[in-house]
Design a protein around this nucleic acid. Structure first.
Lengths: 215, 215
DNA sequence: ACTGACTGACTGACTGGTCGGTCAGTAATT
DNA sequence: AATTACTGACCGACCAGTCAGTCAGTCAGT
């Protein structure tokens, strides 16, 4: 509780917003927006509620900030990776999905997806922003890879949007479930063979030619 | 608003609980548990808040009732179907998933899944009940069909649990998304070719022998 | 058939507690 | 001493839960 530095009051103007946002993300994901108390957010960040209001105008502004700042850098990295590797769609798809899982889905950031599913309806503008800047861009990326695969004859023909859902939704659901009821030990490392089975399944589903030996 | 019978006060002891539960399900799914006002639940059911408390002890009791009563009949029907048709796993799997979608995933009942994802953490006992009586039984059913398919050589070998997730999670996610931010016109009928692509994909993913002509 | 006493389903104003948001004051830093 | 990051007691709006009162429906007595 007061383990590390404990007693004396600290002044750290730069670090506060990020710490508050991280605390808020954790509690929003765990309890939901309406059930999260700002006193608890502040306490978890090691400050008082008044301090929270120095950096965020309202509870909703805090929510917006959590969503908006949590999310963009990763997408940009992935976008760069895609344009550089479109010539081997199967390998690229695998790399993208592993990266998504390790840098996003399996981290606290993955909680934002559960959050938007749970609370998006109550914050239409935030939902629209998230849909456009995160879901939209990430989906477009996956579709692009799938289309490239189809064009090269590596994947079978089919609706890229529908195939994208088949490919991505199992992993997304995995992330959502990790942040819900039964997370078990937090950061459960996914059953060992999950990714093997997963990629084998989706590559077969895509009709990829070279599915024989996945390793 | 006061279209049908309108003004006068009615006494309908039998119908009230179900009407209140339906209203509560809709609002819980739409807004979340904490953000739902009992005045609104009562109003949507056409009664006053006092009446709600004649039939439910508390807001949490209402939540429990909504989850517990929404859910069991369907499972039992599906369980009966499975034991009767284990000899054609591919067809059975398809029938089960279509039934799940039409009788559950695409109806208001499907909202319970989103609800448990959103709020399960705040109601551990309800979550445990749901996990055991709904998720557990339904998952076991799907695993059973997949195992039968593997045993007969219709599906490739693999972890039945992992394969179950690959098969079911796209459909589940579809249902969850329908009850979240972007439902569009409520009851959006799923893009026409969704099921074709979906079954083609999962049967390929399962390495089913007879995938050539899905129609 | 009609009446009017009676029951209990239903109502909605009220209350007590909770929590988002404020601000006068405190103490770390310059 | 001056500045300002930070505190926490406080306020008012809001809402779950209550209860004294109302009225729709029933039926015994005529």
């Amino acid at each position: 509780m007061d383990s590390t530095t404990a007693s004396t009051r600290q002044r750290r103007k730069e670090a506060r917003p990020a710490e508050l946002a991280a605390a808020a993300l954790a509690l929003f994901v765990e309890k939901g927006f309406a059930a999260t108390r700002l006193d608890n957010v502040a306490a978890r960040a090691g400050v008082s509620k008044g301090t929270l209001y120095l950096y965020f105008d309202s509870k909703e502004a805090l929510f917006r900030a959590v969503i908006e700042e949590s999310v963009l850098p990763l997408i940009e990295a992935s976008e760069a990776r895609v344009v550089a590797n479109l010539d081997d769609p199967a390998r690229l798809l695998r790399a993208l999905l592993v990266e998504w899982w390790e840098c996003f889905g399996a981290t606290p950031l993955g909680g934002t997806c559960k959050l938007m599913i749970s609370e998006g309806g109550n914050f239409p503008e935030v939902a629209a922003y998230f849909n456009e800047q995160v879901i939209g861009r990430w989906s477009a990326l996956l579709r692009q890879v799938i289309e490239a695969g189809i064009a090269r004859g590596v994947f079978r023909p089919g609706s890229p949007e529908a195939l994208r859902q088949m490919v991505f939704h199992p992993l997304l659901m995995q992330s959502v479930l990790q942040h819900s009821m039964f997370a078990g030990p937090p950061g459960r490392p996914l059953p060992e063979q999950y990714f093997d089975t997963y990629f084998d399944f989706i590559l077969r589903g895509l009709g990829a030619a070279d599915t024989q030996e996945p390793r």
